[in-house]
Simulated scan of single mutants.
Amino acid sequence: MQEQLGFDFGAMPRKLVRVTPSKLANWADCPRRYRMAYLDRPSPPRGGAWAHNTLGAVVHNALKALFDLPADKRSPEQAVALVHRQWKNDGFRDQEQAAVYRERADGWVRDYVSDLDTSIEPVGVERWVSTPTSKIVAEGRVDRIDLRDGELVIVDYKTGRHALTVDDARGSQALALYALAARRTLRKPCTRVELHHLPTGTVSAWDHTDESLGRHVSRAEEAADELSLATDTLTAGGDPEILFPPRTGRQCTWCDFRRSCPDGQQAAPSLDPWAMLAP
């Protein structure tokens, strides 16, 4: 009777693959880098700090600390003070260069907070969210989750040198997975995702449909199938160089594992740690 109803108690349930947007991005960029970052033990040594990453981390941490304050304390001046409190010189050429970019960060957060309704109370700041699909558990940490008119909005801060567009918001797999995970974790509808680019003061937004979110999930599941198969085969004794080949290109310049990858060293020149800063 149980078999007639479609139950198969002899089959083991399929194990869901846990993925974050950063894991999926690492796999897509270079399987070898994925292996070095998540599978090799001990993990190969990583490169030093990059100044543009330091700059982005300081701004993110300052804005997180701002929303930890009571609403009446969230002033532009306080945001600037938090930049100074969070500041590090890691990756910059010298203290003089670091001071120039700290001043830029001051201006970015001052302008951003000046235009922001700081009375809002986000439902999540650096919030970890997670959701299962048929094949994966998609999870990750979201910069900010707002609640507007009963719906959740995913907010992602960006500090890169290039302005962003609606296509960037629409095409971001990370934002789409965050929207689904926030919907599941916080039990409220979520379709809107936003990229807040502080250097230009612009917001690039996209309103997803179930169909567009489904396309992102399908691509994530395909990648998870590939990386899971490669990982299982490696565990069974497979050749890591065949299962996790290098995918070389410009990205080899700033790869954390460049020093351990001769292919990457040949594919792209080395750069100074401050070379990715906007001029």
Score class of each variant (00 low, 15 high):
3 E>D: 13
10 G>S: 15
10 G>F: 12
11 A>K: 14
11 A>S: 14
16 L>A: 12
17 V>R: 09
17 V>N: 01
18 R>L: 12
25 A>P: 00
27 W>D: 02
30 C>P: 05
35 R>C: 10
36 M>W: 11
38 Y>M: 03
40 D>L: 13
47 G>A: 12
47 G>D: 05
54 T>D: 08
55 L>R: 07
57 A>V: 06
60 H>G: 07
61 N>H: 07
61 N>S: 09
66 L>P: 04
66 L>E: 02
67 F>A: 03
72 D>R: 11
74 R>G: 01
75 S>P: 08
77 E>A: 14
85 R>Y: 10
87 W>K: 01
94 D>T: 04
97 Q>E: 14
99 A>H: 09
102 R>A: 07
107 G>F: 00
115 D>M: 11
116 L>V: 03
118 T>N: 10
118 T>Y: 08
119 S>P: 05
119 S>A: 14
120 I>P: 00
120 I>M: 13
129 V>F: 10
132 P>N: 13
137 V>L: 12
138 A>N: 03
142 V>Q: 09
143 D>H: 08
153 V>C: 12
155 V>W: 04
160 G>D: 06
161 R>F: 03
162 H>K: 11
162 H>P: 00
166 V>H: 14
167 D>G: 15
167 D>N: 11
175 L>S: 02
177 L>R: 01
177 L>T: 01
180 L>C: 08
181 A>W: 02
183 R>E: 14
183 R>M: 08
185 T>A: 03
188 K>I: 06
189 P>F: 14
189 P>A: 13
190 C>P: 09
192 R>W: 05
195 L>R: 02
195 L>K: 06
203 V>E: 10
212 S>P: 09
214 G>C: 10
215 R>Y: 11
218 S>P: 00
228 S>G: 05
236 A>C: 04
237 G>N: 06
237 G>P: 06
242 I>E: 13
243 L>P: 02
247 R>H: 14
251 Q>D: 11
253 T>D: 03
259 R>D: 15
263 D>N: 06
264 G>A: 09
266 Q>F: 04
268 A>K: 06
273 P>L: 10
276 M>R: 15
278 A>P: 05
278 A>T: 05
